[in-house]
Design a protein around this nucleic acid. Structure first.
Length: 300
DNA sequence: ATGCCCATCGCCCTCTGCTGGGATTAC
DNA sequence: AGTAATCCCAGCAGAGGGCGATGGGCAT
């Protein structure tokens, strides 16, 4: 509903509803509703941009565009101030958009899912997740991407010579992506209120990195000692198998002949050798005497 | 009716950071 | 060999910058 105290404004407004386009471009025959629109169009043919910026090469069709450009690029004057935070903008529409980050208002609803965005561009970008459209292509390997930024990172990490690296400030780790460094810091260098115990001794830690480093000091210890003999080993599973030589336990039974084994691996070898018709044993042949062996040995 | 100017709409862009899945490495 | 930890990577959303185009108030 349009109202105006001036008849001239009313008449001009009514023309916006008309499909009549009486003003034609003499260069390309395209028609326009008003002389102003025609003039602006002709300017695109002639390259006429009368409002030139004094500080850079940019030039504009209208004075308003020049003022706005100068605010963005040179004077940094931002007349529209947010009442909640420090944000200020050159244009009112930007402040309006910004305000939605305080109010949480999401006026642009996706028609295919529950997502709603705060501005039209994000909704448009989101719709690519439904359409599968990938408008950005890597010029080197031709992989396609939904967003230009993702492609940019890809080119930087995959096809650039000077790939940036991020050094962890707390340890020697070097990580390719800034966001991954954040994950590293969170997982390994964040103080945890609950104590983390060493798997091998009574030491406790509040930072995972310190715990992991400490546990490495146990690496070469033969921590597992047999209670029946002098045997010691690094891994618990080796000790489990060794203990069976004392107890006589043979938990792995062959399903075909009921023969029992201490180790699963021994059962597997037995089964393949005696019960698997398709099994072809590996044969190692001596290059000097042509004698065959079931494993690699030096022929005397 | 038209020119000037400002407000507004709309589009596209970049930078930023989080997430989760697959690959790789360490144990 | 199996599993847990870690790394690498693309997908995706949040926030904000910049500019072209159009509409309408006001003066001429």
């Amino acid at each position: 509903v349009f109202t105006s105290s001036r008849i001239s404004s009313f008449n001009r407004h009514m023309k916006t509803h008309s499909t009549e386009k009486p003003h034609m471009c003499h260069l390309c025959l395209k028609a326009f509703r008003t002389v102003t629109l025609l003039r602006n169009h002709i300017n695109t043919h002639t390259g006429t941009r009368p409002y030139k910026c004094g500080d850079c090469v940019m030039a504009f069709v209208t004075s308003g565009e020049l003022v706005r450009h100068r605010r963005y690029k040179h004077t940094h004057e931002k007349p529209f101030k947010c009442s909640i935070c420090k944000y200020a903008s050159v244009e009112a529409s930007k402040l309006k958009r910004h305000t939605r980050s305080h109010t949480g208002e999401r006026p642009f609803q996706c028609s295919l899912c529950s997502y709603a965005s705060k501005d039209t561009y994000k909704l448009k970008r989101h719709m690519r997740t439904h359409s599968g459209e990938k408008p950005y292509e890597c010029h080197v390997c031709h992989t396609r991407f939904t967003q230009s930024g993702t492609m940019k990172i890809h080119v930087l990490q995959k096809h650039s010579k000077n790939v940036p690296k991020y050094q962890c400030p707390h340890c020697a780790t070097i990580i390719a992506r800034k966001s991954d460094l954040r994950v590293h810091l969170l997982n390994l260098h964040t103080y945890k209120a609950t104590e983390m115990k060493c798997r091998y001794c009574t030491a406790v830690f509040h930072e995972r990195y310190a715990l992991v480093q400490h546990q490495k000091t146990h690496k070469n210890e033969k921590r597992f000692k047999c209670e029946y003999c002098s045997y010691a080993c690094k891994q618990e599973r080796h000790m489990t198998v060794h203990i069976r030589t004392h107890t006589g336990e043979k938990p792995f039974t062959c399903v075909s002949c009921n023969k029992c084994f201490r180790q699963k691996q021994l059962l597997n070898v037995h089964f393949r050798k005696y019960h698997d018709a398709d099994f072809i044993p590996t044969v190692y042949q001596c290059p000097k005497c042509s004698k065959s062996f079931s494993r690699w040995v030096l022929c005397e």
